[in-house]
Design a protein around this nucleic acid. Structure first.
Lengths: 318, 318
DNA sequence: GGAAGACCAAGGATTTTCCTATAGATGGGC
DNA sequence: GCCCATCTATAGGAAAATCCTTGGTCTTCC
């Protein structure tokens, strides 16, 4: 693993290459803005570490030995690779290349990801994007683990090893039904317990804040809450609601377009249930430029969404 | 040409790579036999020159950023190249070991191989020498096949997969006879067709340039060329010529010493027939240092022969 | 709550790199 | 034949980089 033999320096290789090309140490030294003896010495040092004579020095001419001839292309290649790395870092920095690794909750694509990814690709077509849509705690784990650089998660979140930004987006859980009379006014827990509920897995998993919140309310009201159907995705729950199978609870921004398309009605809960979302990164937040930019764009888009009139504060039942 | 941006150090890249692999600075520092703060500082310096964060440092874990992931393979490659160069230099300088594998035409030992091998053995007594004397196309095949690293062949040669140097030696076909009156003046095709010819196999095989050339000349002169004797080696043909069996055609340098020893006479052909010889190696010339050195010596000896006064431009009939 | 592991910070020592000045060597010009 | 221009090599000292040690903070694990 650890090689013990002393390696030549990149600088020495550079001196070597330009000296070989210019066929004089003095000119090569000038190219590198150093004094001739310095370059001369570095070449000598290189020959010492390689234990091979690279040049035959005559006072008039500088000639590569066979060994030098053999080693020259290797030196050039090594330099080219280091330069390539520096170039790559520049491109990564300038977002010509690089990788975004980002985690979101699964329904983010419904109102954020498509626009975000599209905009990002247009601005930075050379950057690879790796977005995984999981649930918040899995995203947090992945970020902790180092598999993702950042993510957008629903609060509250276990913040060990993480930096959690302030809430960058607030959504609201709304009640959705095909029957207009079910949404005439805000729905309280008592009403809710009487309605046939279709919930998605993510909304009803043990650690989902909505579930926790609703069960608490039901408990203090002395009743239980039993969904008649549980499915995997919020969108699926909405479809079933549109077919009249039952009513559902969804995040407003998740359901917004589908509600309008499918002739559904909605009403806020009473008291309202809000969902707060925030960015997470690893502690000491060394985030690569691509992911940082991705987050910047995401934040902007979310802010725009937040500002739009479509916020659920004025429940229009149509 | 001279790039101005500061380049990372090979050492920094090494630290980077092992830190990325071991996922801890302390362990990486231990591998490189330096203190942890030193390595830490070098990584920081690397990040400064690349202007990119490579790691996310948490108290417990060290995690590559996306940028680090992107740059890691480039760093590994650059290091590998420098190591490859050091390795190469080691092989180059250890001419005390290794093997020469070299192919020549069969008559090369008459004026080249003995001197060459003797000189090489004196300079590099530990190197094994494997020289096979075949004809040019077989040598070319062997080099292509990988059985030989390099060879000396007569041009023209099929150069597929091969690197063919420029002509390194020029010989000339001369007419040899025991009868002085046969060599009073340059021999043309008409005269040749009337003489009793002893030819060696290699000189009369189907793809031999001499045969091709002579048959063309005979054809355009409206005559045929029929050797009275065909034997395997040029030396054998010369012996027969010395016994007066007939006359022969040999390469000047092949016959030079024998002609003098055996009281033979010679004359150039009219017009002259020259033979060009060149080195061949495999494309992408991965030639071992030993063979390279062998070729270098060979080239020097051939150049010396070429320069010598013994060239056949002044046909002295003894 | 304390011990252990991991990283960072700071100041000093060591090694490397570079500079100036000078000497030796070689080929061309007069 | 001698001098000059042009190289490279050598020497000693300055500047910079690299590294070490000590001490500190943070987090995790017991």
């Amino acid at each position: 693993m650890g090689r013990c033999m002393p390696l030549p320096t990149i600088r020495q290789l550079e001196y070597f290459v330009t000296a070989a090309r210019l066929r004089t140490f003095a000119a090569a030294a000038e190219v590198h803005h150093i004094a001739q003896p310095s370059l001369s010495e570095q070449i000598a040092a290189l020959e010492r570490t390689l234990e091979v004579a690279l040049f035959t020095r005559t006072a008039r001419k500088l000639i590569l030995t066979d060994a030098g001839q053999d080693l020259l292309p290797l030196a050039e290649r090594a330099i080219a690779d280091v330069v390539a790395m520096a170039e790559m870092s520049r491109r990564v920095r300038s977002l010509e290349e690089g990788t975004v690794s980002f985690g979101t909750f699964s329904s983010a694509h419904l109102y954020l990801l498509s626009e975000l990814i599209e905009e990002f690709r247009i601005k930075h077509p050379g950057v690879r994007i790796r977005v995984t849509g999981l649930n918040s705690s899995e995203v947090a784990d992945a970020v902790r683990e180092g598999n993702l650089e950042a993510g957008l998660v629903q609060l509250p979140i276990d913040s060990r090893e993480l930096v959690v930004t302030q809430s960058v987006f607030v959504d609201q859980v709304v009640y959705v039904s095909r029957r207009a009379e079910h949404t005439r006014e805000p729905v309280d827990i008592t009403t809710l317990a009487q309605r046939p509920l279709i919930l998605s897995e993510s909304r009803w998993s043990h650690d989902d804040p909505l579930r926790v919140s609703l069960l608490e309310r039901a408990q203090s009201a002395g009743m239980t809450l039993d969904p008649i159907v549980e499915v995997e995705f919020q969108t699926h729950a909405l479809e079933l609601a549109a077919r009249g199978v039952g009513d559902s609870l969804v995040s407003f921004h998740v359901g917004r377009s589908l509600i309008a398309e499918q002739g559904l009605f909605w009403a806020p809960l009473e008291p309202p249930v809000t969902e707060h979302y925030a960015f997470i990164t690893r502690r000491a937040g060394a985030v690569s430029p691509a992911t940082a930019e991705f987050m910047r764009l995401a934040r902007r888009i979310l802010a725009r969404l937040q500002m739009a009139r479509t916020r659920p504060t004025s429940p229009a039942s149509d």
